[in-house]
C-alpha cells in the first residue's frame, strides 16, 4: 500500500494524492511553492479514474477481439500535461514536473 508521506518525498514530487474509486480526492500532500491546489488535485483524480475506466473498457474489448493478453486489469494512468505530469496507479497519484519525471520510479513507489 502506497503512503502519501513516502510519495511526497519522491524526487521532484510536487504533490501526492489519494482518491476514491469514484474519483473524489481523499487525502493529499502538496509541496510548498508548487502552486498546486486541492481543487486541482480533485479534478485530476476524476480525470485519472475516468481514463482508467475507459482504458479498462478498451483492454477488455481488445483482449476479447485480438486474443492479445496483458492489458487487463489496468493498473495505472499517466497524464503528460504541458508543464506537469500526473502518474496514477490504483488509488494513489503523484504530480511531477515534465522535465524531471522518472515514470518507472513513480509507478514503483505508487505500487509499493
Amino acid at each position: 500500500m502506497a503512503d502519501l508521506e513516502k510519495l511526497i518525498k519522491l524526487e521532484h514530487a510536487q504533490a501526492a494524492f489519494k482518491f476514491s474509486p469514484s474519483g473524489e480526492l481523499l487525502e493529499h500532500r502538496i509541496t510548498a511553492g508548487s502552486g498546486l491546489t486541492a481543487t486541482m488535485l480533485d479534478l485530476l483524480s476524476h480525470v485519472c479514474v475516468a481514463n482508467m475506466s475507459i482504458a479498462s473498457m478498451q483492454a477488455r474489448g481488445w483482449e476479447n477481439m485480438t486474443g492479445m493478453q496483458g492489458f487487463y486489469p489496468i493498473e495505472g494512468f499517466t497524464l503528460i500535461g504541458f508543464d506537469w505530469t500526473a502518474v496514477a496507479n490504483g488509488e494513489y497519484g503523484v504530480v511531477l514536473p515534465n522535465g524531471q519525471v522518472d515514470y518507472e520510479q513513480a509507478y514503483a513507489a505508487l505500487a509499493s
Binding site: 475507459i54 473498457m57 478498451q58 477488455r60 474489448g61 481488445w62 476479447n64 477481439m65
Partner: peptide, 10 residues
C-alpha cells in the same frame, strides 16, 4: 469515440 469503440468491440 466511446460508442465507436463499443461498436468495434461488440
Amino acid at each position: 469515440g466511446n460508442a465507436d469503440q463499443l461498436a468495434m468491440f461488440t
